[in-house]
Design a protein around this nucleic acid. Structure first.
Lengths: 425, 425
DNA sequence: CTGAAAGCGCTAACAA
DNA sequence: TTGTTAGCGCTTTCAG
């Protein structure tokens, strides 16, 4: 193993200088800089993250806690987060809470032991509070905590469900059932709310509502239940694609044709949803952007790729252009104040949201300065971040950020107008 | 943050003693032991894994590199590995190679920087060699590397495919198509071999063979292709459940009934396979045991759960009792020699295999002593592992272990006898 | 602008 | 049996 001292020796300089060069600190004579770089290259020097971590009291780890990685939506989220981490030189630690608040809590605690650079958590249904993270930034994804106690990135579930409902109603459906996720899970509640918002005011009132876990089996069970009703619905709005696929199969098993006899709509737009038959009409969650936003929150804006690959165009979720948020956009208000890194983000409450963040690092917008030690960022022009304004030292003045990303209705083949004779009862 | 020195101070002992107690080293006066424990508890002491890692030149991390966590099979594998890690006090680092050998290589390199306790890798199709891991144990899972250059845990893909083929043939099928995974992926090749072994000798010869990625889309595409043949097959044996589901949908879309018109068989038994309609007949890979075996190889036998939960009965893959291996079982031959931890395992070549490993830690069977620093294992009776026999110092004398776990045919509803008139051409 | 030195928190020798 | 001490590899004052 080659240590920094080896590099320093070979370059004929002190460890201090070697370290400064390797970390791209300014104020090193170009000649020295060059010698160190050469030595490092020749020796194949790789800094030891453990030692760096011990010193910096921070490891280059980002911990993700999900209920169950086996859920395709979480798998996609994990993948995006991991890819983002990798691009930044971080590693993603994966933990499954198995929907158990206690397990989740333990996972968080032991994650904290490793002093990660950040934590992303998709809380269980039963989670009421998270352990104190000290100075480790944490962001809640996909679901929301009661009280919004932590910075959160979600998609606009209510809007998504409303869009789907509206679409179904536009098709002529009047008896739309809603299969919603488990009570207490914010995403589930929101989707239900989005559905109720449109159907509740209807002359017929809203259709039957069933709730249960976001899984396949629940979809099957619920569909059977719904189909056994006196006047079965002509459309079922599911709370997840997994549920929807369960519903689909249950309907098919009953000999119903989808969408001719009954329409089914999912939520999430997982990869599989495009490949069922019929392909599932569903609501796309912008997983990529959720992941990007979460990472951005934890680690600051993603540095431009060193090698200079001009961002592989073709992200699949660039549909909705601007993010929709229930708060003012305060992108500019941050950078210049050099907000300190603490669990809460920048300053006042509300969501900060710079649209099109993925395109590239927004020019003037400086970072959250969460972790100023970019890996090998020899290149970086790091202008020695100004120490934070004193006011940033307040004990996390309850400034929970909430970013709510717009979803997108993906119209495929599983929905159609209701069969004749069911339009009006 | 509370350090060991704090604990020591409070207990009125030296750091050395405190350390010894915390790490369960023998030879500490009970009274001291008690005082330290109390102090630690009262202070809520948690050792700093970074510092431990720096010292021990080993972090409590296990890195998993998979092609794509979005693949349900890998997600299941990841979950099992993670759960196992968690139970041992380790953390699982997740990396996606995206089927790119270069990405995989980088992932491995940066993983190595963190000095993980072990590495599990599911190699890409293009992987020919892995970087040297130094003294970090590495195990290949699910797929095999050409040349079997590394210790490997796989399921017996050939046997599984043969079982499925035999089943189909027994049903009366004579024109069985095989949709196999990508060439170069060992699991794919093996499954194909298992199929050919039975159909090749048949009077009709084997049916059409198509190859492609293990994904849904490939299933659809291939099915269409197969169905367009002059004499389409009466059964399709897919290389994965994802493919099979694609096949299923393609068939359904063509108006074919499954299994009445055509039979479809999958491979893997992912959760979803039970929930399609018809439910998929498939070959179960013992994911749990694969994961358990891999972890066991890396970290040694899993210590009995401290709290004493008597192992939540009901593992879903306890079907085949003994593992089938192409080598002698040398379980006893290991422990007593106190094999050193190096990339290669115990001693001579061949697979070592102690059946029923999950039941509990086999009594007398001592560990590989890979990482003698069990977490807080105050309890452990660690008999100061004898220094390895000198012969263990040989430069990894090409002793690749290969464990091949039996699969199990899961008969569900997607296969039936061929339609009348197709039995004999 | 560069070098020397002090630790980060912990464990393992080595002494006592 | 217990205490003392020397680092693990790195970054960062602090002098020069």
């Amino acid at each position: 193993m080659v240590r920094l001292s080896d590099v320093a020796a070979r370059a004929g300089v002190s460890m201090g200088s070697a370290s400064r060069v390797v970390n791209g600190h300014p104020g090193v004579r170009p000649e020295i800089r060059e010698r160190v770089r050469t030595a490092a290259r020749e020796l194949g020097y790789r800094p030891d993250p453990l030692a760096q971590g011990l010193r910096a009291r921070r490891s280059r780890l980002v911990t993700l806690v999900v209920p169950d990685i086996t859920n395709p939506f979480f798998a996609e989220l994990a993948r995006e987060l991991e890819l983002d981490c990798a691009a930044r030189g971080y590693q993603l630690v994966l933990r499954n809470s198995m929907e158990s608040p206690a397990t989740e809590y333990d996972a968080l605690l032991s994650a904290l032991d490793h002093r990660p650079s950040g934590i992303v958590v998709v809380p269980t249904a039963g989670t009421t509070a998270l352990p104190a993270t000290g100075d480790v930034p944490l962001v809640v994804c996909d679901r929301r905590l009661p009280g919004g106690a932590a910075p959160t990135v979600v998609s606009d579930n209510r809007q998504g469900a409303s869009a789907a409902t509206a679409y179904l109603m536009g098709l002529g459906h009047r008896r739309i059932a809603c299969l919603a996720g488990p009570p207490g899970v914010h995403a589930a509640d929101e989707r239900l709310a989005g559905y109720l918002a449109l159907t509740g005011g209807t002359p017929e009132g809203h259709g039957p509502v069933v709730r249960g876990p976001f899984d396949y089996a629940t979809g099957q069970r619920a569909a059977r239940e719904l189909l056994d009703l006196d006047r079965p619905p002509t459309a079922i709005l599911a709370g997840s694609d997994q549920q929807a696929i369960g519903v689909l199969h249950a309907c098919l098993n009953r000999g119903l044709r989808v969408p001719d006899d009954i329409s089914v709509c999912g939520f999430d737009a997982i990869a599989l949803s495009a490949l069922t038959s019929p392909a599932l009409t569903t609501v796309r969650q912008p997983v990529r952007r959720i992941a990007a936003r979460a990472m951005e929150f934890l680690l600051g804006p993603r540095p431009p790729d060193p090698a200079g690959f001009p961002a592989p165009a073709g992200a699949d979720d660039c549909a909705g252009a601007g993010d929709s948020v229930g708060a003012r956009d305060s992108a500019g208000a941050r950078g210049s104040t050099g907000a300190r890194d603490s669990t809460g983000a920048a300053d006042s409450a509300g969501a900060s949201d710079s649209a099109g963040a993925r395109d590239s690092t927004v020019a003037g917008s400086s970072t959250r300065a969460a972790d100023p030690s970019a890996p090998h960022s020899d290149v970086r022009n790091a202008p020695a971040p100004h120490p934070a304004e004193p006011d940033a030292d307040l004990p996390h003045p309850a400034a929970p950020v909430l970013v709510s990303l717009p979803t997108e209705l993906v119209v495929r083949a599983s929905c159609a107008p209701p069969p004749e004779g069911t339009r009006t009862p």
